[in-house]
Design a protein around this nucleic acid. Structure first.
Lengths: 127, 127, 127, 127
DNA sequence: GTGGTCTAGACCACG
DNA sequence: GTGGTCTAGACCACA
C-alpha cells in the first residue's frame, strides 16, 4: 500500500480506502486475516494508533471484524454484495465527476469523448 | 452558490471553487465585478472573514483583481486561456476517476460504458 | 454527566451514551451546540482525545455534526425520529432482558411481576 | 451453547455465563459432570485455553468443583440457593433496565406497558 | 502477540 | 478557540 503523507486526505483514511479497495478488487477475500496493527504500522512507518484508527473505522462500517487477541478479519459479505458495492462506488464517482464538470461548463459530450479516448490500463497486471 | 457546511472541504475553498467555476462556464466574464465580501457573506450566512480569505486566494492566483477604488473584478485572461483551464481541469478529474476505479477493480471498459449511459443534463440551465 | 472510570465500558462510550441520552430525553435539541471538546474534557477531568473520540463516533452515527472551527452541533432530526429512536432503544433493552431471563430459567410471568412492582422514579425531577 | 465471537463480551465470560445459566435453569443439576475442556473447545471451535479459563473462574466462584479423578462437576448448592441466585440476577437486570430507560427519557409506565405486552415464549422449549 | 483504551502533547486549518 | 490529525508511549484483557 502506498501513502501520501503530504496529501490533505488523512493517513488513516488513505489506509481505510486502500483496504476497502483491496477487498473490492478481490485481493482480500471475506474471512481473510489482514495484517496486525503493529505490523502494518511498521511496514508503513507510521504510528500504530493511526493504523488502529483506520481499522476501527472499517469495523464500524462493517468491512472488518476484529477479535481481540486474534486479529482483524475481512467481514463475510453476501455473495454479490461486493459487486453491489463496486457499482455504488462507481455511481458515486461519476456523480462527482459530472457535478464538477457541469459547474465548469464542460459539456457531457466532451466528458464522454475524453473518457473514451483516455489511455488504457497501465499495463503491468498489478502484483 | 451552494455551500455544504458539513463537507470536509473547507468553506473558503468551496467559495473559491464556486467562483472559478462560474468564470470557467462563462457566468462571470473578465472585467465583471463580483459581489462585495460583506454582501456575499450575508447571502451565504457565513463569516465575512471566510469570504475575504477566498477572495484573497483568488487574487493570489490571478483570478481576481482588486481595484483601489474598491471591489473585486474578474481578471482579464488571454483568449483561449479559459479553454485551456477547462481542459486541464478535465484531465485532473479523469485522472482521479481512473485512479480510483483502477483501485476498486473496475475495468476501464466498464467505466466508459457507465459514462456513456449516464443520464443527460438532469436539471434545466440552473438558476 | 457522570463517568464511572472503573467500569469495563470505555469512557468514550459512556460519554457517547450520555449525550445520546440527553438528546433522546430532550435536554439537548437538534441544532444545539454541545460543549467544546476541551471544555468537556476539563469538566470531566479526562483527556481531550477521549472526548474527541466520543464526539467523532457520534458524528459517524449521524447524531452530531461538527464544523471545524465552529463547534459540534446536535444533528437535525426529523420530527418524530427521536420518538422512533426511543422506541427502538426500548425494544433493544427488552429483548436483551428477556433473552437473559430466559436463559436463567426465570419465567416471563415472573419478570412482568417484578417489573410491575419495581419502585417508582427516584423522585427528584432531575436537573 | 451459542457464542458471539464478535461481541464485546469476552468469550470466556460468555462460556461462564452460559454454564451458570444452564445450572440456574435446571439443565445442569448439582453433581452433574460437565463436558471436558477439550471436548467443549472442539465443539465451540475455540481455543481450549479459553474454555479452561472459564472453568477456572467458575471453580473460583464455587459453581464448579474439579475432582481429582478428573472432570468438572456442578457444585452442590444449598437448597433454595439457586432460587436466591435467580432472584438476585433478576434484580440486577431490572436495575440496569430502568437505569437506562430513565436516562433515555422513557417513563416507567411505558416500560411496564411494553413488558406486559411483550410476546410470549418465542421459541419452543429450546433444544 | 493481538487489539483496545487512555493519556500527553504537539501541530494544523478553520472561523 | 475550535475541531482534526498524528505521534509516543503506557497499560490491560484476551487468545
Amino acid at each position: 500500500m502506498k501513502l501520501d503523507l503530504m496529501s490533505d486526505v488523512p493517513i488513516y483514511r488513505q489506509i481505510g480506502d486502500g483496504i476497502r479497495g483491496e477487498i473490492l478488487c478481490g485481493r482480500y477475500r471475506p474471512g481473510d486475516r489482514i495484517p496486525p496493527v503493529r505490523e502494518l504500522a511498521l511496514a508503513l512507518r507510521i504510528n500504530p494508533n493511526t493504523v488502529a484508527r483506520a481499522y476501527r473505522e472499517l469495523q464500524e462500517s462493517g468491512v472488518l471484524e476484529s477479535r481481540p487477541g486474534g486479529g482483524n478479519f475481512v467481514a463475510a459479505a453476501a455473495e454479490g454484495e461486493l459487486e453491489e458495492r463496486r457499482a455504488a462506488a462507481l455511481r458515486v464517482e461519476l456523480a462527482r465527476l459530472f457535478e464538477r464538470t457541469d459547474r465548469l461548463g464542460i459539456t457531457r459530450e466532451r466528458v464522454r469523448n475524453a473518457v473514451n479516448h483516455w489511455p488504457e490500463q497501465p499495463e503491468e497486471a498489478r502484483k
